[in-house]
Amino acid sequence: MKGLVAAGASLILVACEMSGAGEGEGMESPYPLPLEAPERFSFGQDASEDRIFLWDIDVRPDGEGLPQGSGTVQEGEAVYRTHCLVCHGPTGTEGPYHVLVGTAPWEEWPGSRTIGGYWPYATTLYDFIRRAMPQLTPGILTANETYAVVAYLLHLNGVVPDDAVMDAEALPAVIMPARDRFVADDRRGGAEVR
């Protein structure tokens, strides 16, 4: 719970700092709405609850969007060997595609963009795998399989123990090593180079 509160606070901070992103741009819209325009055109249709449920798949750092289900590290190893190993290697470090596993401490620079070294939120793993993985058969994994492979990847990265079980409560509570590394963009134009 403490982790959740901290994560929420840092999100709000980023969001507030972001609100100045449009500074330096003209305040007038480049596309003025025609004066004759009605209050609503209503050209689309109302979206049904079912349709929203079908497409609303994103998962946020506070766990919103996570489905029912659960998976263990051990189950995740089997999922990984079947669906992931061919691209990411036997231990997640060999490639040929993205290196997933790395636990080197990040002092001056991240050694790479591995899950253990760089990813700030564990929920992003669930969100991304559900969207886009495995690359040739995206969407093939069940919720249980997705939780399991997330648990396995977190374990390979030294973030959770080998008896960890991931579900909608456990996953958002995981604190990632790189979580507090991220800062808002402070570039604002003008004479100063940032």
């Binding site: 972001m18 992103a21 700030p120």
Partner: peptide
């Protein structure tokens, strides 16, 4: 009312800076 923190705004498209931080949501092209 908050960012979703997708892969392409956390693991990708973030800019590591000297000193151990990484710049996030660096949208504008200078």
């Amino acid at each position: 009312d908050r960012p979703t923190m997708t892969r392409d705004e956390t693991s990708k498209y973030t800019d590591p800076l000297r000193g151990g931080a990484a710049r996030q949501f660096s949208f504008v092209m200078d």
